[in-house]
C-alpha cells in the first residue's frame, strides 16, 4: 500500500452568498486510486470537482497535492505559474463536452501535440509520432491525424480528448461525466478505454458521474453527495451493494439492474 495520499481535501466549502454549493468535504485520493463522486444534478459534485482542480475558487478549506518532488502544498499557496504548469503536465481534465477540452479548429494531431509542446518538446517528428501513437491507443485511425475534431463523431472527440490529456503522462486526472453525452454503445467503448488506460498507467482519478454503473466499473471508492454534502462514502461495491443512507438507497433503487 502506498503510504501517502496524492491529493488531500479538508473541510472544503464553496458558498454563493447564503447558498451553500458544497461544504464539509474531506477525503484523500491515493496514488493509483479512482474515486467517484456521485449524486444527482445540483448535488454540488461538479462544483466540488472544479474547486479541487483549481478551476473555481473555494470559499474555505484545504486542497493539498503531492508534487513530484514530495512537497505537499495547498494549491492556493502555489504561484500562478506553478499552478498552470501542474494543469498542463501533472494533471488532466476530461470534460463532459469534448469541445470544452479540445481546440475544435486545429487538427487531431495538433490537439495531442500541443500538450507536449507545452512541456518543452520541440522536435516536430517526435511530436507527430507520439501523437500518432496516442491516436492509435484511443482507437482513432492514424490517417485521421490531420483532420479537425469538428469532423469527428462524439465518441471520437471524447477519445481524442482523453489522448490529449494523457500524452504528458499526468499523475492525476479529473473527469466530469466523461461518458455523459454519448450513446450507450459509444459509452461502453470510451469506458473500456478509460478503464484500461487508468490501470495501465497507474493514474489517480477523481471522476464525477451520476451514472452508478460507470462508478462501479471505474472506481474503487465512492463518495455520495446530496445538497452539497457527503452523505455516504466508502468502498464502491460496498456502497452500491449495501447502501446505508436513505439517499444512497434511493439512488441504487432507482436503477433498473445494477
Amino acid at each position: 500500500m502506498s503510504t501517502q495520499p496524492i491529493l488531500s481535501i479538508r473541510d472544503l466549502a464553496r458558498r454563493y452568498g447564503a447558498f451553500v454549493a458544497c461544504a464539509n468535504i474531506s477525503f484523500d485520493v491515493w496514488p493509483g486510486e479512482v474515486v467517484a463522486i456521485v449524486g444527482e444534478s445540483g448535488s454540488g459534485k461538479t462544483t466540488l470537482l472544479n474547486c479541487i482542480s483549481g478551476r473555481m475558487e473555494r470559499s474555505s478549506g484545504e486542497v493539498r497535492y503531492r508534487m513530484r518532488d514530495g512537497r505537499f502544498p495547498d494549491l492556493q499557496d502555489l504561484s500562478e505559474a506553478e499552478r498552470r504548469f501542474l494543469a498542463r503536465t501533472d494533471w488532466g481534465f476530461v470534460h463532459q463536452n469534448p469541445a470544452d477540452g479540445l481546440r475544435m479548429r486545429v487538427s487531431a494531431g495538433a490537439n495531442v501535440g500541443e500538450r507536449l509542446m507545452a512541456i518543452g518538446d520541440r522536435h516536430y517528428g517526435n511530436i507527430r509520432q507520439t501523437a500518432a501513437d496516442w491516436l492509435e491507443r484511443v482507437e482513432i485511425a492514424a490517417m485521421r491525424i490531420d483532420d479537425k475534431p469538428v469532423s469527428f463523431s462524439g465518441g471520437m472527440r471524447q477519445r481524442l480528448q482523453i489522448a490529449r490529456n494523457l500524452v504528458t503522462h499526468p499523475r492525476l486526472i479529473f473527469m466530469d461525466e466523461p461518458t455523459g453525452g454519448l450513446d450507450v454503445s459509444v459509452q461502453a467503448r470510451v469506458l473500456d478505454l478509460l478503464r484500461m488506460l487508468v490501470a495501465d498507467l497507474g493514474l489517480s482519478v477523481v471522476i464525477v458521474t451520476h451514472d452508478l454503473a460507470v462508478a462501479r466499473l471505474l472506481s474503487q471508492r465512492m463518495i455520495v453527495m446530496k445538497s452539497g454534502h457527503v452523505v455516504e462514502q466508502g468502498l464502491t461495491d460496498r456502497v452500491l451493494d449495501d447502501p446505508r443512507h436513505p439517499y444512497t438507497q434511493l439512488l441504487v433503487a432507482s436503477i433498473p439492474e445494477n
Binding site: G234, L235, D237, R238, D241, D242, R244
Partner: peptide, 8 residues
Amino acid sequence: RMVYGNYA
C-alpha cells in the same frame, strides 16, 4: 459478503 467487505 461481510467476510469479503462487500457488506458492512
